[in-house]
């Protein structure tokens, strides 16, 4: 297990409401409280529209909460900082920069010398398996490759808090599994000297079970459950079949409305809502 010393992220009574163009008030987050320990890998899971992206935007400092306080490393977040890196849900790789320039962008913004930042960028491109396309334009890359560029960028920047918003949501199964391994390796290895805290948004239950130390379940702007996963790493297909993992999976499926709440074990009790509609 990883060493956990201190609190990385702390949300107190965090609320966010939006006024939509038609005048209606939407509560994207209502009085959310949680703490995340340094170095923890936390998955946020919940149906779409429940406020996951909103929470990540607040932590990134792109959005000021309507009320409540969000602290990262004992400082109240008011603006973006390279300490908090984000992989966006939409494609965010800059199409007008070559791949390598994308990866070193944040370092360049902070005035890191060109030789040094080039070396760092090349290292992380290598790690995500994209060394061969360093000089390519983003338009020449597939969707999965673009996500890998985004992951390399966020690691190259050296942020201690990583916010990933459904980064692999639109990818095929094989690519997704491959990228899980890349992400976990990078997270684990840099964790020794500088722990990286990860908030990973997903709506994929298996993805959360493979990746997370802890799963926060969201529903309509609130945290409705908080599960700790103690299964050892690296997790394999067999890990997912361990009794407590199977139980957690049932619990999560129930939260997502795919199974009845009192479901115990076995797939026989599962109800697919769509079948009833």
């Amino acid at each position: 297990m990883r060493l956990e010393n201190g609190i990385a992220i702390k949300a107190s009574q965090l609320s966010q409401s939006f006024r939509r163009a038609d005048g209606q008030l939407v509560d994207a987050l209502s009085s959310v409280n949680f703490e995340v320990l340094k170095g923890q890998f936390v998955c946020l899971i919940g149906p779409s529209g429940c406020g996951k992206t909103t929470l990540l935007q607040i932590i990134a400092g792109l959005l000021l909460p309507s009320s409540g306080i969000l602290e990262v490393g004992n400082q109240v977040v008011t603006r973006p900082s390279p300490e908090r890196g984000m992989v966006f849900q939409k494609d965010s790789v800059f199409p007008w920069m070559r791949v390598i320039n994308n990866v070193e962008y944040g370092l360049a913004c902070r005035g890191v010398g060109s030789g040094e930042r080039r070396a760092i960028a090349e290292h992380y491109l290598e790690r995500v398996g994209l060394a061969h396309v360093a000089r390519a334009w983003p338009r020449e890359l597939s969707g999965g490759m673009l996500k890998r560029v985004a992951v390399a960028t966020v690691f190259a920047n050296g942020a201690s808090v990583l916010l990933l918003d459904e980064p692999f949501g639109a990818l095929d199964y094989v690519t997704k599994r491959h990228l899980h391994n890349v992400l976990l390796t990078l997270w684990a290895e840099t964790g020794r000297n500088k722990p990286r805290t990860v908030l990973f948004v997903t709506h994929d239950v298996d993805e959360a079970l493979i990746l997370a130390d802890r799963i926060l379940v969201f529903h309509t702007g609130r945290i409705v459950d908080d599960l700790a996963l103690v299964a050892p790493r690296p997790r394999t297909t067999d890990t997912l079949l361990m009794p407590q993992m199977v139980q957690n999976k049932h619990l999560l499926l129930a939260h997502l409305g795919l199974e009845t709440k009192q479901a115990g074990t076995g797939a026989t009790s599962s109800i697919v809502r769509a079948a009833n509609d």
Binding site: Q57, A60, P80, S81, D91, S92, F94, W96, C109, N157
Partner: peptide
């Protein structure tokens, strides 16, 4: 907006934002 957000989370200031994101896009 996602390009602007991305640059800001990576530490770009206002001037850098104009030069590296807004002008090219």
């Amino acid at each position: 907006q996602v390009y602007i957000d991305n640059a800001r989370t990576q530490g770009a200031n206002r001037v850098q934002l104009y030069l590296t994101i807004i002008l090219p896009s």
